[in-house]
Nucleic acid binder design. Sequence first.
RNA 1: GGGCGCGUAGCUCAACUGGCAGAGCAACUGACUCUUAAUCAGUAGGUUGUAGGUUCGAUUCCUACCGCGCUCACCA
Length: 499
Amino acid sequence: MEDGLFESRAARIGEIEALGYKAFGKRFDFTHTIPDILLDFSAKAAEELVPETRVRIAGRIQTVRRMGKAAFMHLQQNGGRLQLYVKKDAVPERDYALFNLLDIGDIIGADGYLFRTRTGELSLHVEALEFLSKTLLAMPEKFHGLEDVETRYRQRYLDLISNPEVRDVFVTRAKVISSVRRQLEERGFIEVETPMMQPVYGGAAARPFVTHHNTLDIDLYLRIAPELYLKRLIVGGLERVYEINRNFRNEGVSTRHNPEFTMVEFYQAYTDYKGLMDLTETMLRTIAIDATGSAIVKYGDVDLDFGNIRRMTMREAVIEFWDGEGAPSTEQIRNPEWLQTASGKACAGEALAHLFEIHAEKKLIQPTIIYEFPVEVSPLANNNADDPTMVDRFEIIIAGMEIGNAYTELNNPIEQRKRFDGQLDMRAKGDDEAHQMDEDYLRAMAYGMPPTGGEGLGIDRIVMLMTNNQSIRDVILFPLLRPEGEIGMASRLRRLSDR
RNA sequence: GGGCGCGUAGCUCAACUGGCAGAGCAACUGACUCUUAAUCAGUAGGUUGUAGGUUCGAUUCCUACCGCGCUCACCA
């Protein structure tokens, strides 16, 4: 079958090697990265580049403009791009022959000196070329880049090559994670790793992925949360622990949900949910500053203000944001019968949580802490001292999304056993996301758990906010997609070898 | 899972009411020693996602399927 561009590029492998270069090259020790050069020399005028500033650089060819016996091209590396000027009588004959074989997308090295062109662009006057790696496939169009969303997710490498802003998203993601880690470390938290494969899953309400260990012949669940293991460590005296890692939930995919997603969970002995509110406000503000340079972050058409976080109870939020007629009074919102009638839910706690979700959550755009949650939807949180139907828990909601969830941990094993039994009842009634009984967790608690506050923050969603992305897939390098059909790459490459 | 939308050259996009499938970039040949979405002249490149159907004739209309997006449900 005809495969013109692919075969003509493959043929150049032989031509490049005939000149004495390696088509899939070797180690190349550069003196500067391209971003270094841009940083160090962008501000310097043409005359300041003399005496000659000699550099040795490497990168991928992004554009080529050939003009007879001279040419300009742009080389990109680490998100920076530098123009190269190649003149026939300034490079060895062999290197000029190589230059004539170069394709957009090839990876090369270059030696030369920095100068400014007539139009003032900082450029490298090339004196020697080295070949480092051949591209066989055509790059996306230079002006629009790669737009097709499916291809961008499936071939993220190509997305990263042709869309520089995508690289910036993942650089910001790294800054967010680094900020979280640094802030927790500064406060004496230690990073731990707990099982991703768990014989009993818990710590959240979700359906799990199931896998199987052959030798032990047991089913294991990919964790839906690390919570119960982290609290075992609190029992063990690791009084400030955190873990940044993936959770897996076997549920719907949407612009806010990926089956595997990244959470930071942290637990601090001797504090409570109020202490965590203060910590959360500081952490989120600092993340925003570390990631974007400001506590005010543009998201869609709003400016999110991480410097000023409102706090309100779930009941207050339902009343304030009630849609249409019939907003409850402060008495009605505490009345189980009213709640059940208004929501159609069987128990008062689920009813309140449901009303909150349908009336209030989407409208909470500015960072808001919602506290006092119903006990029925919070099997691991400690009771509120004044209201037995409520627990000391809060969520942080931003742009209508749940970003974090925290509570004073339930540390009474007698109460915890009752809560587990309540969850088992819900499971028996068909709620397959109700919490499982975890006897070893009860046993740990029976040894005595200090009063503790614990919290989880959704890293992916925070990155969405910091990078102004509306879809979680744009902040996950390789979001889950159905496997694609036949690609045919192996057979194309096989035909090259068979010739 | 439901609803709506999309799928055309390697990439970005056209193609009126059903009437010969086109352009730019990339590629190839040629000109050009400061260009930058380089320019100029020319060439080649298509199973219109897949399989059926309607029709003299289908990229266009219909059905099913595949993939993706948005949205609702679901997801504390």
